[in-house]
């Protein structure tokens, strides 16, 4: 029993330290890409990203998604004009959307599309509005992918905000490899983000067909840094509670070590190690925006 517990503690500690190392390495890459600014002035190799939104009605979120400075970039929002009458009307009026022709391209099976809208104003032409009967997020995302212009697709749900520089970071990752060699770039930190090549999605048959499964490992990249976040969703533990918890852990470790209960000591020190590693990862992973990303999400997906 003791041996099993020891192996469990060791595995947890190694896992936490490995993740911390990955986050630290990713931080260096992110800083290098941000300093190079190669993706800021021009679209390297014509790389384009279409953000696909299902259920996004908040004006603040749309503003956040549209505010990327990258040139080959668009946001395709799918809404049901009969279920979300007020939101749809407000969006169409604000961005001066006009109805354009919609004919299915036949790449993906898309049903329920009532209309397609593009903005009359040039500066908002990066917004495409699809009016569709809602029958699930996968159907919405397929409809958005069918009208998307660019080769890489980033699905975004309600309440998920792009962190500053996230689009440029994705472009830098795609642009550092020969064209067409990556089909998937994903990040598990913060809110999970998946950037998928259109080709891979079409080959899988749509978002409902688990498109990530068929992508070979050599065509995948994992970024150990947050790209999307949900502001205000993190609970903030008062500092004195954290101090109390730390003191309790330290006391538990000291007492159990003094009494010779080494299993309890190992458990408390493992908990302390994982907690410290998570705090370090949070500090390195989100930099000055560390309060924007709730700490609990760091380990949520492991």
């Amino acid at each position: 029993m003791k041996l099993v517990l020891l192996l469990f503690f060791a595995a947890a500690a190694v896992y936490a330290c490995t993740l911390l190392l990955l986050v630290l390495r990713a931080r260096e890459r992110r800083l290098l890409a941000a300093a190079a600014r190669a993706a800021y002035s021009d679209a390297p190799d014509g790389i384009g990203i279409s953000v696909l939104c299902s259920g996004v009605t908040s004006p603040a979120q749309l503003e956040n998604l549209l505010s990327s400075e990258y040139s080959r970039y668009e946001v395709v929002a799918v809404l049901d004009s009969r279920r979300q009458v007020a939101e749809f009307g407000a969006l169409a009026a604000r961005y001066r959307m006009i109805r354009v022709e919609w004919v299915s391209t036949g790449e993906l099976e898309v049903t329920g599309v009532r209309a397609l809208g593009r903005s009359r104003k040039r500066c908002f032409r990066r917004l495409v509005l699809v009016d569709r009967v809602f029958d699930g997020a996968a159907g919405d995302l397929d409809a958005a992918a069918a009208v998307a212009t660019y080769d890489y697709l980033l699905p975004v749900g309600a309440g998920q905000y792009l962190l500053p520089g996230a689009v440029e970071r994705l472009v830098a990752e795609l642009g550092s490899e020969p064209p067409g060699t990556l089909d998937l770039v994903r990040s598990h930190l913060g809110e999970p983000a998946v950037l998928l090549s259109r080709e891979a999605l079409v080959a899988a048959g749509g978002f409902g067909m688990r498109p990530l499964r068929g992508i070979p490992r050599s065509r995948r990249r994992i970024l150990w840094e947050p790209l999307l976040a949900r502001p205000g969703s993190g609970w903030r533990v008062p500092r004195r509670w954290l101090l109390l918890l730390a003191a309790l852990l330290a006391a538990a470790f000291g007492l159990s070590a003094a009494a010779g209960w080494w299993t309890a000591a190992a458990a408390s020190v493992t908990a302390a190690l994982v907690w410290t590693a998570a705090a370090c990862a949070s500090q390195a992973g989100s930099g000055r925006l560390r309060h924007f990303i709730p700490l609990r999400r760091i380990f949520r997906y492991y």
Binding site: Y40, S41, A43, E69, R122, R125
Partner: peptide, 12 residues
């Protein structure tokens, strides 16, 4: 700004 693309400039 850093943008070079013609569309961005025309939009502005």
């Amino acid at each position: 700004a850093w943008q070079q693309a013609e569309q961005s400039v025309l939009s502005l």
